[in-house]
């Protein structure tokens, strides 16, 4: 029954898979191009072309992903996203200014991914870096990597990696390794691998051994990102289990896939 005074009920639309696929393909193509074609060029200085391709490819891919995902999200996931973004920026800014070897700028993304699923996580990651770019433009080109972190964290949660607190760091290690691989060309081609004091010491160490810039940045990414995501995933798992039942109850993703073990009674609930 619908009254002429109210709007017709609507259900969340399906994700626009074509846009999502195009975004993912663009990001993958950019990454492959940068890794396979560019290393030869780096010896005589980074060309603006590779920076431009990095920026446009990763940002454009991130934008397509967000455009594909957003229409499909429920209001509760959507309201969660700004919260995750604000947490990312607030904590990431602090960690960056302390000169740590890790970034801690994905706590919000991983939290949203665990509570609301991989799609919401990916959109949070991409938008988080885009909005952070308004205060710190250096975060902007890493948007695609952040989206990937959110996607992988949500997938890990979906398949039960958060049912035990000790499994979360393992998932973090794997996700961090993938994230580090993707972030390395951005760091190398956009910023010449310069970062905070902490990450720089690592790059300098690898460069002193004679690695090329991309290889040094990749090794630094693998070191920092795995450590970073290990800490972040553990923190988020502890946080999620510390949440009161009332807060957890509002997320259908938690119930449907039994993301958290035990007290929600979710895995056996239905």
């Amino acid at each position: 029954m619908s009254s002429p005074l109210t709007l017709p009920a609507t259900t969340a639309a399906r994700p626009r898979s074509a846009l999502v696929a195009a975004g993912a393909a663009l990001i993958a193509a950019t990454y492959l191009y940068l890794v396979l074609v560019q290393p030869a060029e780096i010896a005589e200085g980074i060309g603006g072309t590779s920076s431009l391709i990095t920026l446009l490819g990763f940002l454009g891919g991130g934008a397509l992903l967000v455009a594909g995902i957003l229409p499909s999200l429920s209001t509760s996931s959507l309201v969660l996203m700004p919260l995750g973004i604000a947490l990312n920026i607030a904590i990431g800014q602090t960690a960056g200014s302390l000169g740590l070897q890790i970034y801690l700028d994905a706590i919000g993304t991983v939290l949203v991914a665990v509570l609301a699923g991989p799609a919401a996580g990916a959109a949070t990651g991409a938008l988080s870096n885009a909005i952070w770019g308004l205060f710190n433009p250096l975060a902007l080109p890493f948007a695609a990597g952040a989206a990937l972190i959110g996607l992988l964290a949500g997938t890990a949660a979906r398949y039960g990696m958060f049912r035990r607190v000790y499994l979360a760091p393992v998932a973090g290690l794997v996700v961090g390794a993938v994230g580090g691989l993707v972030a390395a060309p951005v760091a190398a081609f956009m910023f010449g691998a310069a970062g905070t004091v902490g990450t720089n010491a690592l790059v300098a160490a690898f460069r002193a051994v004679g690695d090329s810039l991309l290889v040094a940045a990749t090794k630094q990414g693998l070191t920092s990102d795995t450590l970073d995501k290990l800490v972040v995933f553990t923190l988020v798992a502890l946080l999620a289990y510390a949440l009161p039942r009332r807060s957890r109850a509002q997320f259908p993703f938690l119930r449907r896939y039994g993301v958290l073990a035990g007290r929600t009674g979710s895995a056996t609930g239905r």
Binding site: L70, A86, L127
Partner: peptide
């Protein structure tokens, strides 16, 4: 523009000082 995108943008920027 997509209303959801505009909401997330405005809401996140508004939340930042609140979170801190």
């Amino acid at each position: 523009w997509n209303r959801r995108l505009v909401f997330v943008l405005g809401s996140a920027v508004g939340l930042l000082p609140h979170v801190a």
